[in-house]
Simulated assay, not measured.
Amino acid sequence: MNPHLLRTFVAVLDHRSFSTAASELGYTQSAVSQHIAALEADLGTRLIERRPVAPTAAGARLMEHAPALLLLLDAARADITRLHHANPTRLTLAHTPAALGPAVAQALAQLRTTTHPLDLEVRVLSQAAVIENVLTGSADIGLVDGAAAPSDPLPLPNLGPSTTTLAAAEQTLAVLFPLGHPLAGRASVRLTDLTQAQWIDAPDTAIPLDRLRAVCRADGFRPRIRHRGTDLHGLAALAAAGHGLAALPLPLAAALPGLAAVPVAEPRLVHRTELIHPANPTDAARQLADLVTDRQSTPGDGRR
């Protein structure tokens, strides 16, 4: 399957337009049509309906695979490029909003004392964007977070053989309540008692609601509002004003104004942070990984 044809296929369905895909990719519309026809001939089935532009059943199935396949190809290219063009004094760290805590900040400060000069850039992104940044070489190292059973890894997508994932931290998981909420004074709560409560759907900032449904093996956790983006303080303001509940690590949640952070007692969960870096990281990325995970060396410890 030709990756150039596959990229054209994804662009057409992303934009629901042959002409817009052509403009984005720098092709003529005729070339885009030829790419789709060639891909359909290769797979022996029609993939895209032309009027209106929409996937067929086969096209929808291919679309489930295509972005991940293209991302792994980009990761392979970045891995090879990194061997010859790594900058030892530059470090780009991408992280989800709740993943960068005091320990990481202190590790960055320590790294700056040993690496001169260090050109440091920190990006706050969604989990998907952090993973994409690391796989494609746009970021040297990433931090992602989520809810998991103690010592269990996060349920991340397949990152391929060129990426290493390491445990960075485990903290108590807490639910954010506005100060006047009846449960705000509790010593702990059970998530299963909150399935019918109103929640804020903030998958890029807090624990995603579909993850809470999965770990509790229950329906519910219905959103009152949807919050998109990585604005942690905006999410906190919404929760404090009573727009809905959200789940975050206890140390971070306890520092947010106007809220009560109540630890989760059941099911037995932790807020877990994991560090992602290429299998052949830059020197700065390797040193940061060692500092964050309190390790003396990195080889052989990755789970992916």
Rank of each mutant, 00 (worst) to 15 (best):
A68T: 14
L118Q: 07
A94C: 12
A98W: 04
R61Q: 11
G137R: 07
L118G: 07
A60E: 02
L120S: 04
V104R: 05
L70M: 12
T115F: 09
E132I: 04
D140R: 01
R61N: 11
R112P: 09
L120H: 05
S126H: 06
M63T: 03
A94Y: 06
M63W: 02
V104M: 00
T81I: 07
A98D: 09
L72C: 01
S138D: 10
V104L: 01
D79L: 10
D74K: 12
L135T: 09
A76L: 11
A129F: 00
I80W: 08
L135H: 03
A105Y: 12
A66M: 10
L118S: 09
D119C: 05
R123Q: 08
D74N: 07
A78H: 00
H65L: 13
R123C: 08
A78E: 11
E121K: 09
L100M: 15
D79C: 04
A75P: 12
M63Q: 11
P88Q: 11
T136F: 12
L83V: 14
E132T: 14
R61P: 03
L83Q: 13
V134D: 01
V134C: 02
H84Y: 10
H65D: 00
R61T: 05
A105P: 01
P102T: 15
L62M: 06
S138W: 05
L125F: 03
A128P: 02
A109F: 08
L100Q: 15
A129I: 04
T136N: 06
A75S: 15
A107E: 13
L125W: 02
A105H: 14
A129K: 08
L70K: 10
P117L: 04
H85M: 13
V122F: 00
V104N: 00
L93H: 10
L73V: 10
H65F: 04
P97Y: 14
L71Q: 08
L71C: 06
L91N: 10
H84F: 13
G101V: 13
V104H: 07
A66I: 07
A94E: 05
A75W: 08
A139L: 01
T115S: 08
T114F: 08
P97M: 12
A76K: 10
H85P: 08
P67G: 01
E64H: 01
L111E: 02
A129N: 02
V104W: 04
A107H: 09
T81F: 02
A129S: 11
H85C: 14
V124T: 15
T113W: 09
A128I: 03
A78C: 08
M63D: 15
L100F: 01
E121T: 14
D74S: 10
R82C: 04
A128R: 05
L70F: 13
D119W: 02
A107D: 09
Q106A: 15
N133H: 15
I80H: 09
P97H: 04
I131K: 02
